[in-house]
Simulated scan of single mutants.
Amino acid sequence: MSYALNEVEATAKRAARGAGYDWGLSEEAAKATRWLCAQGLDGAAVLAGLLEAGYAAELSAHVPQSLDGSWSAQAPLCPLATGAAISDCAARLQDAPLSLGQVSQPAMILPFAAMAARQLDACVTVECEGFQAVTDGAALHCVGDLPDAAARLTIRAAGSLSNRYPTHTRAEPEEAAWAVLNRFAHKTYAPATEESRLLGAGAGLSDND
């Protein structure tokens, strides 16, 4: 199935919230998922993999313990919380590369690297073993396969884009991943009450005939 990017963004936001992230990170998740899809990547599958990991339940264990030196946590880093911190610390990339410890779904870091690139008005390169991505904030080019987890991720203000991915206005997520997002999104819906059921039925108990 093909979906408009607006629909992808809205579903991703509800799904992240349904998984337990606060509204702020849910908004970040939505924008990041949309950006990945606009680059032709399956952002829905990336987000689905992250949400199923259940990091939101104990997020404090998955955020950088310190923003000095190499960033690491008690458990694999959550790319949403870590990505938001990268955006806040973008200026540091002008002085030295940023090294991250074990990161889950590192593809979700790419939209935040793009935000940093826009702030710096320069290309940003994200790389781990067997994979490299370069973004200027608007476009992206990747070499290698996107892993589900990275033991070490390096982000630097460097690189150039000679072969940009074409941008997309619609997304075609994996059916299973889209189902996962909708399952989490469903948790944000208020349960039906007798009153809401009657209102939804139109006339309710009244008879206008």
Score class of each variant (00 low, 15 high):
83 G>I: 06
49 G>K: 03
202 G>L: 11
11 T>D: 04
143 V>E: 15
42 D>I: 01
104 S>N: 08
111 P>M: 04
161 L>I: 12
193 T>M: 05
195 E>L: 13
202 G>C: 06
64 P>N: 08
126 V>D: 04
153 L>W: 00
41 L>G: 00
9 E>N: 06
70 S>L: 10
69 G>D: 11
15 A>M: 06
129 E>K: 07
6 N>W: 03
95 D>C: 04
122 A>D: 08
17 R>H: 11
32 A>K: 01
42 D>N: 04
89 C>H: 15
121 D>M: 10
104 S>E: 09
185 A>R: 07
192 A>S: 12
150 A>H: 03
175 E>W: 05
84 A>E: 12
108 M>C: 02
197 R>V: 09
126 V>G: 05
183 R>I: 03
35 W>R: 08
33 T>M: 01
82 T>L: 03
184 F>V: 06
76 P>A: 10
100 L>M: 10
11 T>R: 02
182 N>G: 12
128 C>D: 06
133 A>I: 06
69 G>S: 12
18 G>T: 07
201 A>K: 13
79 P>E: 06
145 D>N: 15
162 S>R: 12
173 P>K: 02
147 P>I: 09
30 A>Y: 04
40 G>I: 01
75 A>G: 08
207 D>R: 07
53 A>Q: 13
139 A>V: 08
177 A>F: 02
27 E>V: 10
128 C>K: 00
138 A>V: 14
104 S>Y: 02
58 E>F: 13
63 V>D: 06
39 Q>V: 00
20 G>W: 02
84 A>N: 11
137 G>P: 08
14 R>D: 14
193 T>A: 03
184 F>I: 07
93 L>A: 08
107 A>I: 00
176 A>E: 15
116 A>L: 08
27 E>F: 10
67 L>H: 13
101 G>E: 07
90 A>I: 08
189 Y>R: 15
58 E>P: 04
75 A>Y: 14
206 S>G: 06
103 V>C: 14
147 P>G: 07
192 A>V: 13
48 A>D: 01
151 A>P: 00
104 S>G: 07
202 G>D: 09
23 W>G: 03
43 G>F: 00
95 D>G: 01
25 L>Y: 03
57 A>Q: 15
157 A>D: 04
187 K>W: 09
59 L>T: 02
199 L>M: 14
199 L>N: 12
35 W>K: 03
23 W>C: 01
149 A>D: 11
101 G>N: 06
73 A>E: 05
139 A>H: 15
142 C>D: 09
158 A>D: 15
201 A>Q: 14
184 F>H: 11
105 Q>P: 02
125 T>Q: 15
27 E>R: 12
147 P>E: 06
36 L>N: 00
52 E>Y: 00
4 A>K: 12
80 L>K: 01
148 D>M: 09
171 A>G: 02
25 L>H: 02
102 Q>S: 14
209 D>M: 09
201 A>N: 12
181 L>D: 08
130 G>S: 05
